[in-house]
Design a protein around this nucleic acid. Structure first.
Length: 495
RNA sequence: GGCCCUAUCGUCCAGCCUGGCUCAGGACAUCGCCCUCUCAAGGCGGAAACACGGGUUCAAAUCCCGUUAGGGUCACCA
């Protein structure tokens, strides 16, 4: 039997990091076993589903390279892959359940249901449908439906039994039927609920393994009962732990960035996000060595029983580190291309408007590659290359630890030394500047700090001489002169 | 609250199934040192955990029970 798994997001907002997490494990499992990975859009909530959300989900899956074998945009043998286009299947299967007596129409109004819940709450009874419409005769049910009365279809649960859910990671989980509500299967708009659509589609699409989030565990007995009612074998269930906020609640928008679009806009590499998500679930390394893994390595090491069950706290700090690792591992030219593409597609508007040319980015990349943790840091590391002049502050010069008049003299001396050259040559000019520091009686570090601030406006930058070389001798010298002027006009007592 | 799931350093993960080799290993973060024109990167080192209580056993992080804690779920949302 070939493995068929799926990811079934509902298109009701930004593409969620949890979708990527569950998607990754499904993808790994499918590919490891030579099976298929499908994307099914669960848009049965007519109020909240949007086409934009669906598009952004598919775009995010492509960004992460979690390629699906079948899906709404590429089709496949079990289509359509959008539940809103499969209503005939659900209608037919609901009728089947009705005919078998495994489900019944419920004509209760929202008002009555609301009242019922209030009373249950007041009486401290477990909430759930009270079963009023269970006893309706077939004749009455048919008559009222035919008369156009609004109804939903509910699952008829035999309250005396119990159902065992077999979970790959947790073993048998037992649920007594008294805890299982007569779940709505078909809403009054004749769209199915998740429970029905999910079971029918998984069956019709030949899904063999359901790897989904842990939050589904408590509704799984309903699904198992549905498979039984239809007379179908149930797929293998495997519930994945939920990603958590720092306070250990289920990961949420308010407490964590959850949108995959945000990660892309921040300049995280898809390779790094995937690597990170994998690390949240299992340990590919068996304890030793590197934690950097590409797709092929993950696939080779992945297995369902290696998934750890504790809900992992989503730790952005570690993701940043991993992203830096991946950035450093990229060939310099590739990084340059990624940066240019990121600016063009995801960069802030101002940056897009004055996007640097690829060949210049390629020259800058060697200076920043090991410093950069995210592509979005491009601008803060390199802005001084693109400005006509740099903003100088006394605050920035303070790290050179010399009074302004002396600083001015040092900067001027450096400018004089470099001015005759048409270009800056680090191997020649750096030793010359060191020697100059000795002659002037200042520390080498202080001299370079003074230059650094004069050239870039800040005290933490990529390598100085290389930066000046790229900037060009003329601009460099001009900035030194400007700095000397600024310093000469500063309060002489200022440290 | 009922039901269900989970429980090793601040965080992620290993060890647990097949008890002893573990006064528990790796990674991120953190602290210190080295390297160094800054910032990084890199190297070296430090601090840091088996939730608690009972069993079982010659021996338990590892097996069993309970407690506690955290989480999920109880919709005509998925």
């Amino acid at each position: 039997m070939t493995v068929r798994v799926r990811i079934a997001p509902s298109p009701t907002g930004d593409p969620h990091v949890g979708t990527a997490y569950v998607g990754l494990f499904n993808w790994l499992y499918a590919k490891k076993h030579g099976g298929q990975f499908l994307l099914r859009i669960e848009d049965t909530d007519q109020v909240r589903s949007t086409p934009e959300s669906e598009r952004s989900i598919m775009r995010a899956m492509k960004w992460l390279d979690l390629a699906y074998d079948e899906g709404p945009d590429i089709g496949g043998p079990c289509g359509p892959y959008r539940q809103s286009e499969r209503t005939e299947h659900y209608r037919k299967h609901t009728q089947l359940l009705l005919d078998k007596g495994a489900a019944y129409r419920c004509f209760c109004t929202d008002e009555r249901l609301g009242l019922m819940r209030e009373r249950q709450k007041a009486a401290k009874l477990p909430p759930g449908y009270d079963g009023l419409c269970r006893s309706l005769s077939k004749e009455e049910s048919d008559r009222r439906a035919a008369a156009g009365e609004k109804f939903v279809v509910r699952m008829k649960i035999d309250k005396s039994g119990k159902t065992i859910v077999k979970d790959v990671l947790r073993g048998d989980i037992e649920f007594s039927h008294v805890e299982i509500d007569d779940q709505v299967l078909m809403k009054s708009d004749h769209f199915p609920t998740y429970h029905l659509a999910n079971v029918v589609d998984d069956r019709l699409m030949g899904i063999t393994h359901v790897l989904r989030a842990e939050e589904w565990i408590s509704s799984t007995p309903k699904h198992v009962l549905l498979y039984e009612a239809f007379g179908w074998p149930a797929p293998v269930f495997c519930h994945l732990p939920l990603l958590r906020n720092a306070d250990r609640t289920k990961i949420s928008k308010r407490k964590n960035p959850t949108s995959l679009d945000w990660y892309r806009a921040q300049g995280y590499l898809p390779e790094a996000l995937i690597n990170f998500l994998a690390l949240m679930g299992f340990a590919p390394a068996e304890g030793e060595g590197s934690e950097i893994f590409d797709r092929a390595q993950l696939m080779a090491r992945f297995d369902l029983d290696k998934i750890s069950l504790g809900g992992p706290v989503f730790d952005l700090t570690k993701l940043e580190w991993l992203n830096g690792e991946w950035i450093r591992r990229l060939p310099a030219d590739v990084l340059a291309e990624r940066i240019v593409a990121w600016i063009a597609n995801d960069g802030p508007a101002e940056l897009r408007a004055s996007a640097p040319p690829l060949d210049f980015v390629k020259k800058v990349v060697p200076l920043i590659q090991e410093r950069m943790k995210k592509l979005s840091e491009w601008d803060e590391w390199t802005d001084y290359f693109f400005k006509e002049s740099v903003v100088l502050t006394k605050e920035a010069f303070r790290r050179a630890k010399l009074p302004p008049p002396q600083l001015a003299a040092v900067v001027t001396a450096c400018a004089d030394l470099l001015a005759p050259h048409g270009e800056i040559v680090p191997t020649r000019d750096e030793p010359a500047l060191r020697e100059l520091a000795g002659k002037l009686g200042v520390k080498v570090g202080d001299l370079f700090m003074a230059l650094r601030v004069a050239i870039t406006g800040k005290s933490a930058t990529p390598p100085l001489l290389e930066s000046m070389a790229l900037l060009g001798a003329a601009k460099s010298v001009a900035r030194l002169r400007a700095a000397a002027k600024f310093l000469a006009e500063s309060d002489p007592g200022e440290l």
